[in-house]
Computed example of a mutant assay.
Amino acid sequence: MSEFKYQLTLDPSNPKPPTRDHASHPDSLPEAKKTNVHPKGSSTGDENASIYFVGTATTILEWQGLRIMTDPNFLHAGDHVHLGPGVTGTRLTNPAIDLHEIPPIDAILLSHYHADHFDEQVEASLSRDLPIITTPHAKEHLHDSKEGGEKFTAVYDIDHFENMLLSVAPSNSSSDGKSPAIKVTGMPGKHVPPGPLAVINDFLGAVPPTNGWMIELGYKAGSDFKTGYRIYISGDTLLIDELKEIPKRYPDVDLMLIHLGGTTIPGPKMPLLMVTMDAAQGIQLMSLINPDVTIPVHYDDYDVFLSPLEDFKKAVTDAGWDERVVYLDRKDNYKFLVKD
């Protein structure tokens, strides 16, 4: 097990309250507005895991009593976020649910320290001992530079192709000694295109470094880990050469959550630089990763998104890939089967 940078044991019977005021939270997510299964209609009714779409890049993964949240952003329509020097974005939508409606969770996956993925209200409200898996840059802001009670105490920094194992407490093991586990690996991502602007950004630190994630749901027996379902989350990246390494290492991806929107800065009135994939790059990433199913997220929640979802839908149809994509509205979920 020495391959893992970190190992963390989770106890589904005692998940962390999401907010540090420890106010009463519901035991479960609200019922989904629509439940989706495999787009080819191949459901057998035995799905045992789900992705719940809250909005922008915020999703909640549920499996085997575990609940993992990605990129928590719970601002409402009309709220503003700071995205860099002189750059702001305005939220156009409401999240499916509010932060106080989130049931207890076990961990957060934070792709990068940017306000449209980890807003100020979230940062002020979250429990300080809630495990957060994120970039080294984000750890500096959440742990290293904070003092006293403001410091997040369980931040795990994962760089590209580093990984950690989330194990379930032994009491949850089956009679054959297998216990659920989640392997999380940082994937490459670049929020700014390579070249002179990237060099300038590295100096100014205007746009933070970002991760994608490979999430492998599976079972651990002794020192062995067997993957039962593999999810790739692109994170806020452009289509860069480094992504070509992913299918070499992971030729079989069951599900891809792709961040789209063609995010453009400084903003819609002056769209000078695109910092997330648009429809054209998104369809190229589908071709590169070749996942069984793709779900687009991060495409219409802020006014800096200039590549509408309809453009991606058209590109998918033109490619003949309609049976490979599931479209979730906020408060929808997608159910799937993790094999043992």
Rank of each mutant, 00 (worst) to 15 (best):
E3D: 15
F4E: 14
L10V: 03
D11Q: 05
P17I: 00
H22D: 07
S24F: 08
P39Q: 03
T44W: 06
I51S: 09
F53K: 13
Q64F: 13
I68G: 07
M69H: 04
P72Q: 03
N73Y: 12
L75C: 06
P95D: 03
I108W: 04
E120K: 14
Q121G: 11
R128K: 13
D129A: 01
D129R: 03
E140G: 11
D144R: 10
E147T: 13
K151N: 06
F152Q: 00
T153I: 06
L166M: 11
A169P: 05
P170C: 00
S175L: 10
I182E: 08
I182K: 11
G186P: 11
P188A: 13
P196N: 10
L197F: 15
G205K: 13
P208I: 00
E216V: 01
A221Q: 15
D236V: 00
D236F: 01
M256D: 12
L257G: 06
T264L: 01
V275A: 00
D278Y: 05
L288N: 03
L288W: 04
P296R: 08
V297I: 15
D300Q: 07
Y302D: 11
S307W: 05
P308A: 07
D311F: 15
A315G: 04
T317C: 05
T317D: 14
W321I: 08
V325C: 07
